[in-house]
Amino acid sequence: MKLIGSMASPYVRKVRVVMAEKKLDYRFQEDNVWSDDTAINASNPLGKVPCLVMEGGEAMFDSRVIVEYLDTLSPVGKLIPASGRERAEVKTWEALADGVLDAGVLARLEATWAGRQDGERCQAWIDRQLGKVRTGLSAMSQGLGEKAYCSGIHLSLSDIAVGCALGWLEFRFPQIAWRADHPNLGRLMDKLMQRQSFIDTQPR
């Protein structure tokens, strides 16, 4: 398998962490989708990463779809419950973490995209998206409480998704003091950063 992605993308990181935790072999191909010479459209018509290309050449995209598939490839370290309320809980955690990222990415693009002049940027839009980030962080903190993991008693996709979101916020929005506001999220992130899968995939 070949994974096309960016070292800075938190969605790509989520897939890479899952692959590491599942002990799956793959080749990583770095691509900048914002570059004029990007080749991502040949595999994903939406022009986004991550994109997983199978041995036969068929492609799979969207991080949620990819990690769902990857979890079925090996019994090692099952990350998503098979069915029922437990499964719904894990997928809801993933949706919350990805939603925080979606808002953060929109805020950052509005503030930094080279296709706009400074006078064309909308601070009200940026503030609205960052408000979603903060309410999402509060929901994460409340849901985690004093538990060791977001869902159940072992590492799951819930923790991976949350950890990738928190790591990206530290990387792109260091001014958001989520560790001070939500110490339990800081403790979870510190624990995740002891895992080789998170150490090897830090955004850059």
Rank of each mutant, 00 (worst) to 15 (best):
D102P: 08
D62A: 09
L24V: 00
V15F: 02
L169A: 06
A42L: 12
L166S: 04
I80S: 08
K191V: 03
T135E: 09
L185E: 04
A59V: 08
D36E: 13
Y149S: 04
I66F: 10
I160Y: 00
G99K: 03
R187C: 04
S158R: 04
V33A: 02
L96S: 03
Y11L: 02
P81I: 12
G186L: 10
S6N: 13
G56D: 15
A111F: 01
V133F: 10
L70P: 05
I80L: 14
D98P: 05
L157D: 06
V76H: 12
G119F: 09
P45V: 10
K91E: 14
L137P: 02
R121F: 08
A114M: 03
K78F: 01
L46C: 08
A95C: 10
V100H: 04
V53N: 00
M7E: 11
V18Y: 07
F173A: 06
A39G: 09
P50W: 07
I153C: 05
P75T: 10
G84N: 12
K78A: 14
T201C: 04
L192N: 05
A88G: 11
I176M: 12
T38W: 07
R16D: 03
M1F: 14
V18N: 01
W168K: 01
Q142P: 03
V76G: 00
K23T: 06
E94T: 13
A139I: 06
A161V: 02
S43W: 11
L52T: 03
T112M: 11
P45F: 15
A161E: 00
E21Q: 12
